[in-house]
Computed example of a mutant assay.
Amino acid sequence: HPHESVEVVNKIIESFKKGEKNHAFFWIPYKNKFLFIQYYAVVNEKGEYKGIVEVTQDISEIQKITGVKRLLDW
């Protein structure tokens, strides 16, 4: 992670470890993209924190969607 975001990421992880939150979402412009970033707490069957999953998706094309597109409307 960029140096300027490490403190925020650490706060998210601490919140997950304490059981205060189980997900965090945010979005940012990055270079010529628009990123949707999702963090999910991974817990065991007892609810104990085991780790984190980070999902980053470029949603630039999604933001351009208009109208309706039906399933199998290829």
Rank of each mutant, 00 (worst) to 15 (best):
H1D: 08
H1Y: 04
H3S: 04
E4W: 10
E4A: 08
S5L: 12
V6R: 14
E7P: 00
E7S: 09
E7R: 11
V8T: 07
V8H: 09
V9Y: 10
V9W: 04
V9A: 06
N10E: 14
N10G: 06
N10F: 08
K11T: 02
K11D: 08
K11E: 03
K11A: 09
I12G: 03
I12K: 10
I13K: 09
I13F: 05
E14S: 15
E14Q: 15
S15H: 09
F16H: 10
F16L: 12
F16K: 04
K17F: 04
K17E: 14
K17H: 09
K18E: 15
K18N: 15
G19V: 14
G19A: 15
G19K: 13
E20H: 12
K21T: 11
N22V: 13
N22F: 15
H23I: 02
H23F: 14
F25Q: 04
F26W: 14
F26D: 05
W27I: 00
I28P: 03
I28K: 11
P29C: 02
Y30Q: 06
Y30H: 11
Y30D: 06
K31R: 15
K31L: 11
K33C: 01
K33Y: 00
F34V: 02
F34Y: 01
L35M: 15
F36M: 10
F36R: 08
F36C: 03
I37D: 05
Q38E: 07
Q38T: 10
Q38A: 11
Y39C: 02
Y39Q: 03
Y40H: 12
Y40K: 11
A41I: 09
A41N: 10
A41W: 04
A41E: 07
V42D: 11
V42S: 08
V42I: 15
V42R: 10
V42F: 05
V43M: 08
V43Q: 10
N44L: 02
E45C: 00
E45K: 11
K46M: 08
K46L: 13
K46A: 12
G47D: 01
G47N: 01
Y49S: 07
K50R: 14
K50S: 06
G51W: 05
G51A: 09
G51V: 06
I52E: 12
I52P: 01
V53M: 13
V55I: 13
T56L: 06
Q57P: 00
Q57F: 04
D58M: 03
S60D: 02
E61Y: 02
E61P: 02
E61T: 04
I62G: 00
Q63W: 01
Q63K: 12
Q63E: 07
K64G: 03
I65D: 04
I65V: 09
T66G: 06
T66M: 03
R70Y: 10
L71W: 03
W74Y: 13
W74R: 13
W74K: 13
W74P: 01
